[in-house]
Computed example of a mutant assay.
Amino acid sequence: MGRTKSTAKRAKQGKMQVEPPLQGHPMAKFFTNLADFNNYIMNFAPRKEITPRQDLLDFVRLRDYYYPDLVAIAYTSLTMEFEEVNSSSFTIFFTLGRNKYVLNVGSFCEISSLSWHGTLFKNGDKPPEDWNYDRNEACRFFNLDPNCGHKMPTNPMSDEHRLLHYLLVWVIMPRSHNHGVVMNDDLVIMRALRSDVNINWSYFIAHHMAKLKDGPTTSGLGYVILWTRIFKYFNIDFSNILQKSLKGPNCINCATLRQMGHGLAQEQPQQAQQDQAGPHEQEHQAGPSEHPSMRDMMQVLLRIEQNQANMDTHLTRVDQRLSRIEQYLKIEEDEDHD
Results as ranks from 00 to 15, higher is better:
51 T>Q: 08
121 F>G: 02
34 L>K: 01
82 F>N: 08
140 R>G: 00
55 D>F: 07
40 Y>D: 11
30 F>A: 00
141 F>T: 08
137 E>C: 04
38 N>K: 15
47 R>H: 10
48 K>M: 11
152 M>F: 07
18 V>T: 15
150 H>F: 06
26 P>V: 15
77 S>A: 11
26 P>R: 14
125 D>I: 00
71 V>A: 02
82 F>M: 11
152 M>G: 07
55 D>M: 08
95 T>I: 07
132 N>D: 12
141 F>L: 06
21 P>V: 14
27 M>R: 06
42 M>R: 08
17 Q>L: 14
134 D>K: 00
117 H>M: 03
79 T>Y: 14
108 F>R: 11
143 N>S: 04
128 P>Y: 01
145 D>H: 13
10 R>I: 09
130 D>C: 06
48 K>P: 06
107 S>D: 14
136 N>K: 14
80 M>K: 04
98 R>F: 15
42 M>F: 07
144 L>C: 03
77 S>V: 09
149 G>Q: 12
56 L>Y: 06
152 M>E: 06
83 E>G: 12
23 Q>W: 13
59 F>Q: 04
37 F>T: 04
122 K>G: 00
71 V>L: 05
78 L>C: 10
142 F>M: 02
143 N>E: 00
88 S>A: 07
28 A>W: 05
39 N>H: 13
148 C>M: 15
32 T>Q: 13
104 N>L: 09
135 R>L: 08
132 N>W: 05
80 M>C: 10
72 A>F: 01
107 S>W: 02
104 N>I: 10
108 F>C: 14
75 Y>I: 09
16 M>W: 12
138 A>Y: 04
137 E>M: 05
111 I>F: 04
124 G>N: 00
86 N>T: 02
55 D>C: 09
53 R>E: 12
11 A>P: 01
121 F>C: 05
33 N>D: 11
124 G>F: 00
123 N>F: 13
84 E>H: 11
16 M>V: 09
118 G>H: 02
97 G>H: 07
24 G>L: 08
116 W>C: 07
64 D>I: 05
60 V>Y: 11
85 V>Y: 11
110 E>G: 06
145 D>F: 12
105 V>H: 07
86 N>I: 00
117 H>I: 00
43 N>L: 14
58 D>Q: 14
22 L>D: 12
75 Y>T: 08
53 R>Q: 11
81 E>C: 15
41 I>P: 01
82 F>A: 07
58 D>N: 06
114 L>R: 08
149 G>D: 12
71 V>H: 07
115 S>N: 13
70 L>G: 01
153 P>C: 11
111 I>Q: 02
36 D>H: 03
87 S>P: 01
40 Y>P: 08
36 D>T: 07
147 N>E: 10
36 D>M: 05
62 L>P: 04
25 H>Y: 10
137 E>G: 03
54 Q>S: 09
38 N>T: 15
103 L>N: 03
35 A>F: 02
27 M>C: 12
130 D>G: 02
124 G>D: 00
112 S>D: 04
39 N>P: 05
